[in-house]
């Protein structure tokens, strides 16, 4: 068993979601020989390659596709790179995390290789036997992959947390190989062009990896009131999330949406303020360890999944919490 990881990097580091994919590859097999595929340009991809080479003891090889036009991940080029690397390496598995990066690239690469990909795997029982949620997580589907190699999948990163001993990994760093991408002609690269990314820089932890997540629903009533949540988040060292209703109303940007079609989170502590608990929202947070719900409506469905509920006005609860919660060190 050998696995190719379609890796994502940022600021010279392999992203935590990709480390989860590597952890999932270890679940596929303890003897898995893992190759990590990175693409990018400049010193940042080289630094990320160094990180990839020492991030996990099972990583035996790091493959780097480096070119100016690969600075931003475009599915058209990536799919062809994955195909070329697979034809050389004959991996039994190809895996990526279910991020917008992985979801965009992996299915295209699978089609180009003429295999059926499996989306959003949450459990690996055998090398070809997986569990994935369907119907917004209201059912779990166990599937057996019976197609040809490679078996391709995206994994839900909240389900595979890598506990890696960094010393064991660093003792034996993987080889880093530049791959020849001269086959990437204008016909592939020229079809699509990256223009820009608008994001709101935040000091707070990333929604997908935060230990504490606090979310607000439509009941927050305004973008201004979301600032209250942010204050509390700061105090708790938490990330802020939102429901679809709050995003649609324009209170917060789209990348804060938690749910079936937004981000999937599974923090230690999830606090929902003014969230009714639509099934589409629950799909994104039901695996949280401890769920707290604050809502004026005692019949809100969110209380059915909450460990602790407060039937109260969030505009009274938040200031009180701000005052009484111990400062995060």
């Amino acid at each position: 068993i050998s696995t190719l990881i379609v890796a994502e990097h940022d600021g010279g580091f392999v992203k935590p979601s990709t480390l989860s994919a590597i952890a999932a590859a270890e679940v596929v097999s303890k003897e898995n020989s893992i190759s990590v595929l990175l693409a990018g340009s400049g010193p940042s991809v080289e630094k990320a390659a160094q990180h990839a080479a020492t991030c996990h003891p099972l990583v035996s090889e790091v493959l780097v596709a480096k070119a100016e036009e690969l600075e931003h991940p475009m599915a058209e080029s990536w799919a062809e790179i994955v195909k070329m690397v697979q034809q050389k390496g004959s991996y039994s598995h190809i895996m990526a995390a279910s991020t917008s990066f992985g979801k965009n690239i992996l299915p295209r690469a699978a089609a180009v290789l003429d295999v059926s990909p499996i989306t959003d795997v949450v459990q690996i029982s055998e090398p070809r036997l997986f569990v994935r949620p369907i119907y917004a997580g209201n059912a779990l589907c166990t599937v057996q992959y019976t197609g040809l190699d490679p078996c391709m999948m995206t994994i839900r990163s909240t389900s595979f947390q890598g506990e890696v001993n960094p010393d064991a990994a660093k003792a034996n760093p993987a080889t880093i190989t530049q791959i020849d991408i001269s086959f990437l002609n204008q016909e592939i690269v020229g079809k699509s062009k990256w223009l820009s990314l608008s994001s709101q820089e935040s000091e707070r932890p990333d929604l997908g990896n935060a230990r504490v997540v606090i979310t607000g629903g439509r009941a927050l009533k305004s973008a201004e009131n979301f600032k209250l949540l942010e204050k509390l988040a700061e105090k708790l060292g938490a990330a802020v999330g939102a429901t679809r209703a709050a995003v649609d109303a324009g209170y917060v940007p789209n990348d804060l949406q938690v749910g079936q079609t937004g981000k999937i989170v599974a923090p230690e502590l999830y606090i929902a303020f003014g969230v009714s608990g639509a099934i589409q929202h629950l799909a994104g947070m039901r695996d949280s360890k401890v769920i707290v719900a604050v809502n004026k409506d005692a019949d809100a469905p969110i209380f059915q999944v909450a460990d602790y509920g407060l039937v109260a006005d969030l505009f009274e609860v938040i200031p009180e919490l701000l005052e009484k919660v111990p400062e995060k060190k």
Binding site: T99, F101, K193, W194, L195, S196, L197, S198, G208, P253
Partner: peptide
């Protein structure tokens, strides 16, 4: 709509 915000491509 990507994980980090809004990406524009042509």
């Amino acid at each position: 709509e990507v994980d980090g915000g809004i990406e524009t491509i042509c």
